[in-house]
Design a protein around this nucleic acid. Structure first.
Length: 505
DNA sequence: GGACGGTGAAACTTCAGGTTGCCTC
DNA sequence: GAAGTTTCACCGTCC
């Protein structure tokens, strides 16, 4: 089908999008990077009128964080014209606002990275794919057919339209290739991910810990029925892989293996049972390799002088936290310096600077550095401007960090590592709120978070007692009338005991 | 004559994403 | 590979 478009702009995407809007329809524009999502949205917004109905949503988006960042401002401005960008750098609340207002047909166009390619049911009539290439391990590469199909499948959802259109933007010379491979081509085969090492380790341990399997025969029997075995066929190789996982888990002290029966005979039966530690690791649902890494480092940390950074770097070096924040050209020297200044405090293994792992290690230092700045109350805008970490990406990483610190707490209880337990508990709270140690007391009060606690503290209200004694008028001035009342009420009557005996920091 | 500022071209950098645990106003 | 960002040379203006 030939699409005739008025050439209102030099840019093809803008023309398609304007045409879509003139049909009273909506479109999703898929692009290859976050920056591109933003600039494309801004470019489209220039060609559109602002709509007053969107002011409220724009305001909400602007104030999704305690203090608007430049990203918030950019998005809020685009939204007024009915255009949004959508990627992992946005905070969940902003993403939901965009999705909801797209559903109610207020936002007409969303420029997005593949965040929106999977699972969402949105009323897009058109999907526009700005480029079919994306940066990969070997330079720019064509995306998988499956991914193209996912993106194309976002348009013309049954609930909203009887059909949809997917439009690929390309150079004339690539046209043949794209039609042949994507539109007429077949999608790639799907392969089982069960054999991926972290997955295999986690599942074998959890099968044993939950007593689902207790002998090697059971275990083989179980895996024989999986899609992995069906696809892989070679049971000998599978048995070999499982054996090595079992050996690893035993070495970690997460399972006990018993061999019974006539020695070296075919009747020999191998049975296993999870240890107490193994049980807990399975419940915590982390990669056993990570658990082992944490435990080893925790034992070191319990014995020596540690800093916040010791722990922050440790969790940043786990598989769970990947992909890490990357050390760019801009901050390479700072990160290197940070590493040298904290080197003696680290509890993680340090690779040689000529090892191939070294880059990754530096990234763990960068990630830990960002965490450390966060708990020292650096605001989101600074983290973005100086370290290229967007609010949404930070939130996502903090969520994993919280989980890992929870694991450290639980494991240190079992291992009776009191020092580690105490330090990790505090760090976990500081990460959650993004505050310095001195604000912890005030955070025990409801309706007091990062910003308000800091305001109170700098104005001389530093403890719960200060807060209790504080003059209501002064409080109102600092944190607003409503909040001040809510805070004060927590010090009255019976609420006092239940709410405020939490922490005596 | 020198400092400053604006401009544009060249050089340089960087580049998607998500599930698991637990709890709670 | 493409696009955003930084750097730098060049030129004009002002003091």
């Amino acid at each position: 089908m030939i699409l005739k478009l008025p050439k209102k702009s030099k840019d093809d995407v803008v023309n398609i999008v304007l045409d879509t809007i003139s049909m009273k329809k909506q479109a999703l524009v898929f692009v290859a990077s976050k920056i591109s999502a933003e600039s494309t949205a801004e470019l489209i917004a220039k060609s559109l009128q602002s709509n007053e109905e969107l002011n409220e949503i724009s305001e909400k988006i602007l104030h999704a964080l305690p203090k608007p960042t430049s990203q918030c401002e950019k998005l809020a401005k685009c939204i007024k014209q009915g255009v949004a960008f959508h990627h992992s750098g946005l905070v969940a609340e902003q993403r939901e606002l965009i999705e909801d207002s797209f559903r109610t047909n207020l936002v007409k166009i969303i420029c997005c990275t593949p965040t929106l390619a999977y699972g969402l049911d949105l009323p897009a009539f058109r999907t526009v794919i700005k480029t079919m290439k994306r940066f990969g391990n070997h330079g720019m590469q064509y995306i998988p057919v499956l991914e193209y199909q996912q993106m194309a499948g976002r348009s013309g959802r049954p609930k909203y339209d009887s059909y949809g259109e997917a439009i690929i933007i390309s150079n004339p010379e690539d046209k043949e290739y794209l039609i042949e491979n994507y539109i007429q081509g077949e999608s790639e085969n799907i392969y089982s991910k069960l054999a991926v090492e972290p997955v295999l380790r986690t599942y074998v341990l959890s099968l044993i810990a939950s007593n689902f399997v207790s002998t090697k025969e059971n275990l083989l029997e179980f895996f024989k029925k999986t899609f992995w075995a069906y696809q892989f066929e070679d049971m000998g190789k599978i048995e070999y892989l499982l054996d090595s996982v079992l050996g690893l888990l035993e070495g970690f002290g997460f399972i006990d293996i018993k061999e019974e029966g006539i020695f070296h005979s075919a009747d020999e039966e191998i049975s296993f049972k999870a240890t107490e530690l193994g049980q807990r690791v399975a419940q915590l649902y982390i990669d056993p390799l990570t658990a082992d890494k944490l435990i080893k480092a925790m034992n070191i940390a319990d014995e020596k002088e540690t800093t916040d950074f010791s722990y922050l770097q440790l969790i940043s070096a786990t598989l769970e936290l990947r992909p890490l924040f990357r050390t760019g050209k801009k901050d390479y020297e700072d990160i290197q310096e940070k590493f040298l200044s904290e080197e003696q405090n680290l509890v993680d293994e340090i690779p040689n600077s000529y090892d191939y792992e070294y880059d990754d290690f530096l990234n763990s230092v960068k990630t830990a550095d960002v965490f450390e700045r966060w708990i020292n109350e650096t605001d989101e805008e600074t983290l973005f401007a100086k370290y290229s970490v967007r609010p949404g990406e930070l939130k996502a990483k903090l969520n994993y960090a919280d989980w890992l610190f929870y694991c450290i707490e639980e494991l240190s209880k079992i291992l009776s590592l009191k020092k580690v337990l105490k330090e990790s508990t505090r760090l976990r709270i500081r990460l959650e709120y993004g505050v310095k140690e001195e604000l912890l007391a005030l955070l025990a009060v409801k309706h007091i978070g990062r910003m308000r606690a800091r305001t109170l503290y700098t104005n001389g209200i530093k403890t719960l007692n200060d807060l209790r004694k504080a003059d209501l008028a002064k409080l109102e001035k600092l944190i607003g009338k409503q909040t001040a009342l809510k805070v004060k009420s927590q010090f009255e009557g019976k609420e006092e005991k239940t709410e405020l005996n939490l922490n005596d920091y």
